[in-house]
Amino acid sequence: MEFALSEDQRMLQDSISGFLKDNASLDTIRKIADGDAEAKAGLDAGLAEMGIMGLHVPEMMGGSGLGLLEACLVQEALGYTVAPSGFLAATVAADLLPNYQEDYPRGIADGEMVFGLALTELSSRRDGAGVTVDNGRLTGTSLLADVPDGATHVLLADTSGSFHVADSWSAEPMRTIDRTRTFQQLTFDGTMAETSTQPDASALAAARLLIAADTLGAAQAMLDKAVEYAKERKQFGRVIGSFQAVKHLCAEMAAKLEPARALVWHAAYAMDTKDPEALVMANLAKAHLAEVGTFVAKTATEVHGGMGFTDLLGLHYWFKRIGVNRQLFGSPEQVRQTAAELQGFVAA
C-alpha cells in the first residue's frame, strides 16, 4: 500500500501553491497587513475564481466533493504564504451543514454565500462572553470570530455546544499580533437563528485540523527561509550553513516538521473515512502542530540572527501567524484535554 498523495492531490496542491506564489507575494501580504482593501479584494477574487470555497461541498450540491485531506492541502498552501482567506470558515460550514440544510452548501459552492466562523467559546470563554439561545433567538457575544470581508452568514456555537447560522450581527474589529487576518467581536441581540443543530464535536475538530494545516504551511515556509538564508549569509568568510551549529538547527526543524506533516494528513484521512479515532487524531494534530510550529518559528528566527527581527525579510508575518494559530480554537493544553475526554481518560 502506498501512503502518499495521489496524482490529483499533488496537482491540486501545486495549482494552489502556484497561484499563491504569483498573487500572494510578501509585498502583497505587507499591503494587506497595512489595511490595503484593494490588495485583499484582488486576492480574494482570485481564490474564488479557483473554486476552492466549494471544494468540500458535496458534488450533488454543486461543489467539488473533495475531502478534508484535500482541504488541508489547500490550507497548508495558504499558511505557507500567510495568505488571508475565508476558506477555513467555508470548509467547516460545508462539513457540518449538509446534514441540516442544503441551501447553505449550495450557496457556498456558487459564491452567493460567504461564511464566517465563531467557535472561540467552545474551547475558552472570557467572563461575560458567550452566546445563548432562547426560542431560536441568539443573545450574547463571540470573540475572535473569523469573518471574511463580505460575509453573508456566520456559523457560531452557543454555550451548550450547539451550532447556529445567523445572517445578521453587530461587529467590532479585534486586533491581534497577526495583521494578515482580521478577527471580530460579534454581538447578537435577540437575533433569530436561521438554522440550529445539535452539539457536534466534529465541527470543532475540523476547524482545529485546518488550523494545524495552516501552521504546518507557515512553519515549512520559515524552515525554507532559514535554509536559504543559511546558504547565502556569510560570516568569517564562510556561509553560515557550513557551521555545524546552524546545520543542527535546520536539521532539528526538519526532523520535527516532517512527522508533523504525516500526522496532519493522517488525521484528515481519518476524518474523511470516519475512523473511530478521527476526532482524537484531529485534536492531537492541532496540539502537536502548535508546539512544533512554535519551535520552528523561534529556531528559524534564531538562524536569521538579528535580521530575523527586521521587517526587511518579513519573517515576523509567519512568526505571528503561528503564534495566533497556537491559541485559536484552543491552546495545546485545552486541545489535549479534549482528546483525553474523547478517549475516556478523564475521570467524571
Rank of each mutant, 00 (worst) to 15 (best):
G67E: 07
G67L: 03
G67C: 07
L68Q: 11
L69N: 03
L69Y: 13
L69P: 01
A71E: 12
A71P: 02
C72W: 05
L73Y: 06
L73T: 14
V74W: 11
V74I: 15
V74R: 15
V74M: 09
V74C: 15
Q75R: 12
Q75I: 10
A77K: 07
A77T: 01
A77R: 00
L78C: 06
G79R: 10
G79C: 12
G79S: 14
Y80P: 04
Y80R: 15
T81W: 04
V82Y: 12
V82P: 09
V82M: 08
V82F: 05
A83D: 09
P84D: 02
S85L: 12
G86D: 11
G86W: 06
G86R: 06
F87N: 04
F87K: 00
L88R: 04
A89R: 07
A89E: 09
A90F: 10
A90G: 14
T91W: 01
T91Q: 01
V92F: 04
V92L: 04
A93C: 07
A93T: 15
A93W: 02
A93P: 10
A94K: 06
A94R: 03
A94N: 05
D95Q: 14
D95W: 15
D95H: 12
D95E: 07
L96V: 12
L97M: 13
P98A: 10
N99P: 08
N99W: 15
N99M: 10
N99S: 09
Y100R: 13
Y100C: 10
Y100D: 14
Y100Q: 11
Y100I: 13
Q101L: 14
E102P: 09
Y104E: 01
Y104G: 03
Y104M: 07
Y104A: 04
Y104S: 07
P105R: 05
P105L: 14
P105Q: 03
P105I: 09
R106G: 00
G107F: 02
G107T: 07
G107I: 01
A109F: 01
D110T: 08
D110Y: 02
D110K: 02
G111A: 14
G111F: 15
G111R: 08
G111C: 14
G111Y: 13
E112M: 15
M113N: 12
M113H: 08
V114Y: 14
V114I: 14
F115Q: 11
G116H: 00
L117V: 09
A118R: 04
L119T: 05
L119I: 07
